[in-house]
Design a protein around this nucleic acid. Structure first.
Lengths: 107, 107
DNA sequence: CCGTTATATAATTGATCTATTATATAACTA
DNA sequence: TAGTTATATAATAGATCAATTATATAACGG
């Protein structure tokens, strides 16, 4: 799954997570996203491109502005993959629990 | 959150995700994890170090072997962070729904 | 003790990432 | 139309990453 590569590595960067957190409050233009950071506009534009490529945001054109907002698809894909780990963890815990349950009476 | 950095970038690599998928089936030693991949043992050892550093796996010592298994903490932290995005996405969808609901009668 | 097995670490190389500056484009505004 | 604003792209430098080979360590089996 090449999308998972893109989605997870997009999320690996704290600036990009902060951008997503900002977009969780609602749509924002590029300059609005530049403002809170100590980074140049091209740097933010690049981060946005990465987030868009990963399917984590979408952009529309509005005159000279390109407001960004969160997109749902990538999050769903990540959730789906993590569900596999969660299931495994639960299963292993259950197994551990039953091992402990078996041991206790004998100790 | 520096742990999120580590966890997401650990998950960004397809080899590491494959290792986790393998561990979802149960504990495995380093050599057992090397076998299915077309990579050298040092390469896998490095990936395991990254996964351990991210809190995604734990290892125990068993003679000369170091069996690895999944660890729950990092997944929980990731889930928690993604929950924020999910909430925002739902909220935005609700908003869109209500906008559409408002528009329809007038169209 | 010795050779083997399981794993880790170091040095190195090539690739990828991130940020910067400089510049381009395209749409508003006067 | 000229100047400004919003954004994108290119060139580039420095940092980090991932893989390899070579080597170290440490436990196990005879």
């Amino acid at each position: 799954m090449p999308n998972l590569d893109a989605a997870f590595s997009a999320l690996a960067d704290p600036t990009r997570r902060a951008i997503l957190a900002r977009l969780a409050l609602g749509e924002a233009t590029v300059m609005e996203l530049v403002e809170p950071f100590d980074l140049t506009q091209p740097a933010i534009s690049r981060h946005l491109k990465v987030l868009e490529g990963a399917g984590l945001i979408v952009r529309r054109v509005e005159g000279t502005k390109r407001p960004c907002r969160l997109a749902p698809s990538a999050v769903a894909e990540i959730d789906q993959w993590l569900a596999m780990l969660r299931r495994a963890l639960e299963t292993n815990y259950d197994r551990l629990d039953s091992v402990l349950a078996t041991m206790k009476p004998e100790q």
